[in-house]
């Protein structure tokens, strides 16, 4: 007896209610963009400069006391958050202190850190600084730039690759799904105000990779079925292809999610944001490869009649069977 997440034979109609899926995706995208502009992202120091200090103490943390100790130092905007995590021991009390970039200096001076330490020792004598990270405004500006370039470059490279291997309609469909995933991920980070740092960019690019993986598998089957069923309606071919690959799509998503969930729960708070981004990305990526990429392909249409030569569609790579 086998565990089956998807019935043996499915012939579900994925395009019966395209209006609903298009509407849903558009709504989510608009909401994400709106949140991004209204609420913004909770950028980490990688992107806006400043200093974060991770403290540890055996005493229970009272954020107000910490704040009262640090405020007289006049460091400008200081945020103090207590960190909770199931992997911590009972007497492990962790906080993250973020200090804004100081006027006129690149990275924070040792004096500032020492002053903060002295001030906090008044409140919690056993406090230790587990990590201190400081990024100057000059570098953080460049980091944002590189990050944006990286994401755009990744999407462009993929567009070209799929265009070479398939046809341009497939490439556009895949990229539509990608952009959808990236926007929705940025959206959820804005809604939940999870710290957005350099690692999240890595997560975004992984989502790009994963979402593609899924899309390409579906498209590969579409390409094959298009050759096999020359007379069938494009919509039916797409539906058939999605149904045929559905079991694989779900299997892979579930194994990946299983692994990521283990990391989310047990991996510690340092990478939780990063793992969250990937979990979200896997869910959104799976949804988008079925509903966004294929719907886009359906709307764009694919050239079916290969009897007449046409130099706009396909090329020497299009029919390579690796």
């Amino acid at each position: 007896m086998r565990l089956r997440l998807v019935p043996k034979e499915t012939s579900w109609d994925f395009f019966g209610k395209t209006k609903i899926s298009i509407g849903f995706s558009s709504l989510m995208i608009i909401a994400s963009i709106a949140f991004f502009f209204i609420q913004g992202l909770n950028f980490g120091i990688d992107f806006r400069g400043g200093t974060t200090i991770r403290t540890e103490s055996a005493q229970t943390v009272v954020v107000g006391d910490y704040r009262a100790a640090i405020d007289p130092l006049g460091l400008g905007d200081v945020t103090i958050t207590e960190v909770f995590d199931p992997t911590f021991e009972d007497n492990q009390n962790v906080t993250m202190i973020r200090i804004q970039a100081q006027e006129g200096q690149e990275s924070v001076t040792a004096d500032v850190v020492r002053n903060v330490e002295l001030a906090l020792k008044e409140v919690a004598p056993d406090i230790t600084f587990v990590s201190v990270e400081s990024v100057g405004p000059k570098v953080s500006g460049e980091l944002i730039q590189t990050a944006v370039i990286a994401v755009v470059l990744a999407i462009a490279a993929v567009l070209v690759y799929i265009w070479l291997r398939f046809e341009w309609q497939f490439a556009v469909g895949a990229v539509a799904a990608l952009v959808h995933d990236v926007i929705l991920t940025i959206g959820i980070f804005s809604v939940l105000q999870i710290r957005f740092d350099l690692a999240i960019i890595a997560a975004l690019l992984t989502i790009v990779g994963y979402s593609l993986n899924d899309t390409v598998v579906v498209f590969d089957r579409v390409r094959e079925n298009l050759r096999r069923y020359k007379k069938k309606d494009l919509k039916d071919v797409l539906n058939l292809s999605i149904n045929e690959t559905l079991s694989r799509t779900v299997m892979t998503s579930v194994t990946t999610l299983l692994a990521l969930l283990a990391l989310f729960v047990l991996g510690g708070d340092v990478i939780r944001g990063f793992v969250f981004a990937m979990i979200w990305g896997v869910i959104v990526g799976t949804y988008s490869s079925v509903f966004v990429a294929s719907t886009a392909l359906l709307k764009l249409g694919v050239k079916r009649d290969w009897s007449k030569p046409d130099n706009t569609a396909g090329n020497q790579f299009a029919n390579v069977d690796a």
Binding site: A150, L212, D220, A322
Partner: peptide, 14 residues
């Protein structure tokens, strides 16, 4: 092959 090459491209860019 196609699925892994596309993921590999993003890894290279990263």
């Amino acid at each position: 092959i196609d699925a892994n090459i596309t993921t590999f491209i993003t890894a290279v860019i990263l």
